[in-house]
């Protein structure tokens, strides 16, 4: 009887410990969300925050937010990440298919190793690379160079998730295609890839979310700007740059802008992540049916 009691006691204790640890793990996430929402909301509730590009008027006499906004940073993030996606997603997807479909090739081991190393590379180093190759030779900062830096960052993420999604497709599908007398590359691209599409899209979305939140690669490539800029050949503002620069300044109104920009960024990344989870669940269901 006492042994039984001891067991129950041990079971309860470990359960409580587990719950406590889970809550502890969630605390940082909760705090980040709470602070960002609480501090960012006052800026975000004004619609002009999303469209205007003016700086808030200066301290100390003026109100925190008038018609100031980070429209230029939102547009900039869209353009920079968009161009980065155009570069990284096609290359990454093709690379991922190569890794999954031709896994016997010795080449693919090298490619896999290279992409793993690239995932672990500090993003500031990638930014430095883009600076040396695309900023220094042209003598000015540009959104293009920022896009290239982000593309390098996205590439391994897209490639490895594509590989994962393609590997999930049952071998029978591949064999059925080949048995019809179709060339291997057509089976890979026109049969396997569409079947793996949801997984590939998930990878692309995750890479976009990751790139959208990166600051370091943009510091000395896209550099930032105070005006709305559409030309990717010019320096351009991005949301993480807004956060980084304004948060460090001693003006309350600019700090409010930074919190607002951070909130926009977090909501964006969260939304992308949620969509990608949904798409991934569909992929797993689909692969189960084949």
């Amino acid at each position: 009887m006492s042994r039984n009691l001891r067991r129950r006691y041990a079971s309860w204790t470990s359960l409580v410990v587990m719950y406590v640890l889970t809550v502890l793990a969630l605390v940082p996430l909760g705090l980040v969300l709470w602070f960002t929402v609480a501090k960012g909301l006052p800026s975000v509730i004004h619609p002009q925050f999303f469209f205007n590009s003016e700086l808030p008027p200066c301290e100390p006499k003026c109100p925190a937010v008038s018609n100031a906004g980070v429209g230029h940073a939102i547009v900039g993030t869209g353009i920079i990440v968009g161009i980065a996606s155009l570069i990284a997603i096609p290359i990454g997807v093709l690379g991922g298919i190569f890794l999954a479909e031709y896994r016997i090739a010795r080449w693919s081991n090298w490619v896999r190793l290279a992409s793993d190393v690239l995932v672990g590379t500090p993003s500031i180093a990638i930014g430095l690379f883009a600076y040396a190759f695309l900023v220094v030779p042209f003598h000015h900062f540009s959104a293009y160079s920022g896009s290239v830096a982000l593309a390098v960052l996205m590439l391994p993420i897209v490639a490895r998730t594509t590989e994962g999604a393609v590997s999930l497709i049952p071998n029978g599908l591949r064999e059925s295609g080949l048995a019809l007398g179709l060339p291997r590359w057509r089976v890979s691209l026109q049969l396997i890839l569409p079947a793996a599409a949801p997984g590939v899209i998930t990878g692309a979305l995750l890479a976009v979310a990751r790139a959208a939140g990166e600051t370091a690669p943009l510091l000395f490539t896209a550099f930032g700007a105070h005006i709305l800029e559409w030309d990717p050949g010019m320096p351009m503002q991005a949301l993480p740059l807004t956060v980084y620069k304004y948060a460090l300044l001693p003006y309350k109104s600019l700090q409010a802008q930074a919190w607002g920009a951070a909130l926009v960024l977090i909501v964006m990344v969260l939304a992308i992540n949620l969509v990608s989870r949904y798409v991934l669940r569909r992929q797993i269901a689909l692969a189960g049916q084949l």
């Binding site: 049952p170 029978g172 599908l173 064999e175 059925s176 295609g177 048995a179 019809l180 049969l191 569409p194 079947a195 689909l286 049916q289 084949l290």
Partner: peptide, 13 residues
């Protein structure tokens, strides 16, 4: 020489 497998593997279309 066509082939039919143990699993029908319908194409996802």
């Amino acid at each position: 020489v066509g082939m039919v497998f143990q699993r029908p593997s319908p194409f996802p279309m």
